[in-house]
Each structure stands twice: as structure tokens, then as C-alpha cells.
Write a protein that binds this DNA or RNA. Sequence first.
RNA 1: GUGGGUGUAGCUCAGUGGUUAGAGCACCAGGUUGUGGCCCUGGGGGCCGAGGGUUCAAGUCCCUUCAUCCACCCCA
Length: 439
Amino acid sequence: MEPQIPKGFRDFLPERMRLRKRLIAKMTDIFERFGFEPLDTPCLEYAETLLGKYGEEGDRLIYKFQDRGERMVALRYDLTIPLSRVVAMHPEIIKPFKRYHIAPVWRADKPQKGRFREFYQCDIDIIGTTSSYADGELLVITYTVLKELGFKNFIIRINNRKILNAFAVNNGIGEERLPDFLRSLDKLDKTGLEGVFAELTEKGLMNDQLRTSLTAMTGDSAAADHNESLALLDSIVMGHEAGRQGVAELRILHETLQASNVDPACYRFDFTLARGLDYYTGPIFETIVTEPKIGSITGGGRYDNLIGLFSKETFPATGTSFGLERLITIMEELGSAESKQSLTQVLITQFDPQLMPHNLRIAGMLRDAGINTEVYFSQDKLKKQLTYASHKAIPFVAILGPDEHRDGKITVKNMTTGNQETILQYDMESWFRTQLLQP
RNA sequence: GUGGGUGUAGCUCAGUGGUUAGAGCACCAGGUUGUGGCCCUGGGGGCCGAGGGUUCAAGUCCCUUCAUCCACCCCA
């Protein structure tokens, strides 16, 4: 039969897998540095747990089916709802609860560049505090991760749902039309002000006051100075108490970023950021990269009411998510991806089947010394064995022939330089150690 | 869900309706019976995505279908 892989799903061959593992290790390291702890949950949830949490479009994209007990189950759509369920089921968890979760999620979407049906999210969330310093910390972590991965041209866009609400109220848009309004506003980057006006008109949301306000707002939305941007935001929430509070929260984010030495060029208070999910209640943020056009690479925000859906108590919460596949796509396009070198450090060639026990013994010694070692299994010509090492980019080869064996020696070869020497087996470990330390 | 592009060797792609469908790279073997990369020689590989149609003749034209990529919607 014809081998096939489901549409939108992918195999990760070793070369790519090495990069993925390295990235995940890096993020894990940073998350733990900030005091986050790991969590994992099942890939399957009851459908009712997920449905109705992501809006209409979200429900359509959830993979769902019946299990043998005829219950509707669904593959998780993100990591936030499972987290909410966990927190609601375990009220004893000490707050604030800071957890990270790196795992695949599934969406029955139509695949595209940088978009798949199975993809990894890397989430960090802080449950149980309303402090804006928590939101600020998420942004500092976002910055740290991208910096340490070697990213240069990225901008963290920051806004607050409270400000958007205030703006809508002040400009005659009813609460029930807010999601519609936000969706149109979010397209400003793509379609420009005229495009947004056109779409708002089509939706019947357009009015003169709105036109004036939006024109005024977006005119200098690219204000270089963050204090100016914040002042501008103040002016649009005029007379709206929750809106004022929203700006105050952003001031704390700004304070946090400044005190953490985050490059001011890497973030922006951006009134036009809306984000799709309905459940955000406070600060929202996402990161865009300018070089390869690929959409956002991180996204998140505060969702103080979500966990309440699963519990009598309410839990304030804030979180953000990194798109692993998109980070990788960018790293590959920018050429900062991993070298092709094998993880195997030494290949022990087979000279004579009679000597295999000695090959195995030597391999064991090297492995005990922490050196990744493989033995060649077949009795092929030495030429072929070296070709194998060469093609797999294994940096060192050890040859044990009858001559070496007789003298208790071994021939060791550096495949990069081509140099080789015959040394005592006793000295082998320190020889490799010295060589491996060199760049 | 809507609209476009592309399907020829493992990969990247040539191929004016007209013999037996090609190239580069990759792969295998030999040149070298204890030594990879460079070079030379040779070799294996293809239902030209699938199905139907037009034609004396189809990789090439038409229709259908599938796959894939891109854009929209939405999103990481």
C-alpha cells in the first residue's frame, strides 16, 4: 500500500528533531529560571470541556468524536483550557501557580505556511494573582526567550481589553458588537485604515465619531516614545473608569520592562492589537517578526473569568504561548538552524568479526565516560564504514585491527581534519576528551 | 468554507503534439585486499499524481479527481 501521512500532520526526522529538542530545552531552562514548574495533561478531553470556549470559529476547528462509551471527546485545542480544568479540580494548589506546558495541540484547520493541524505550543501561565507585575513577567520572559534564541527583529505588541472596551463604549459600539469590532480593528496592519473603515461600514458599525477617533488614534500609533503612546491611550479612555485602569495596568507593564532592561525597541503599546479569543479581560500581547512574514510567534493575555467556568471560585489568570513551529520556521529561514552533525561522537569500525567482543568492550568504556558511541554492525570494507561515518557526520572513528589488538592499541581518527594516530587503548578516553573539547 | 498556483527519478527541475523522456545533485559499484571527503569510469532507478476524453500520435491539449503550496477567513 501507498504510505501516507494525514494532511497537516508531519514526521520529524532526526535532523529536524535535534533542533526541536534544543529549542524546547532552551525554553524549559528559561521558564524554570523564572520559577515556573512543569505540567502535563491528556491530549483528550471531554468535548463539553472545550466547546464554547473559543468562539464559533474555534468550535468548528476542534477535532471531536465519540469514544466507545459513546461520550463525545475532543483533542485539546490549546493548553489554557486544560490548565483551567486542572486548577478548578485542584483548588489546593498553592497560588500564585506558575506553570509551563510544552505539548502538541490539534486544530482541524486548512494547512498553510507555518500552520499545521498538529503543532506544539509552549505555554506559561500564572494563576491566582491580579497583579500586573505577573503580566509584565510574561513579557520579560518572552523577550528573554527570543533574545537567547538569537532573534533580532521582533516586536512585542501590547494592549489592554479594558482600553478597547472603553474606546468602543465612547464611540457608540454596543458590547454585543465588540468582538466584531475588534476583529476588524485587528486588520489595520494588513488592510490599512481605509480597509478597516470599509469592513466596519459593511458590518454596519461605522459612524462619524468612530471615524474621527480612529483616524486620530492611528495617525501616530507608531509613536516612538512609550510614554507618549500611554498618554495617547489615556486620552481615548477619557471618562471611562475601567479604561483608565487599563492604562494604569499598562504603565506597570512598562515599569516592569524598563526595570528588567528590555530593549525599548522590542515592544510597543499598540491600540490596534485585538487578538481573536473572546476570553481575554485585561492586558493582551503578541509578538510579530518583520523578516519572514509568518504571523505572530507568541500570543497571550489576561483571562480573569475563564477558570470560573469550571469552578465556584474565580481565579485571576494570565498567560502567554510560544508557537514552536513558527519559531523553528523562522530559524530555518534565517539560516540559524543546527549543523548536520550527528549526535554520535565515535564510530567503532568492524575489522574482523572475531574482534567484535573487543569493539563492544571499547564502546562500553567510551559510553561509561559519557562519549556517544556506536559500533559498526556489518563486516563491510573499511572504505564503506568510513563513508558511513562521513555521511552521517560522525566526528571520530576508532579502528581496531589485528595489529592494534596485538599491541593493546587502537587507531583513532579525526574525520574533520583527517588526522589519525595509533594510541594505547588505555589512553583512548583522554584522547577523545581532549579532541572533543576543541571547537 | 472561498479563490489561485504547481504535480516528470530520492531531491531541485528541463522537456515546440512527433523515435527508446533528460540534466544536476543524491544513491550503488569500481579505480584503492587497512582509510571517508576531491577526481575519473560505470550502474540502478520513472504507470510523466490518478481516471477519462480529443488526436494517426499526448509528459505536452481538454474534463474530472486526488495531492501539495499560496492567499482569504481564522490563528501559534
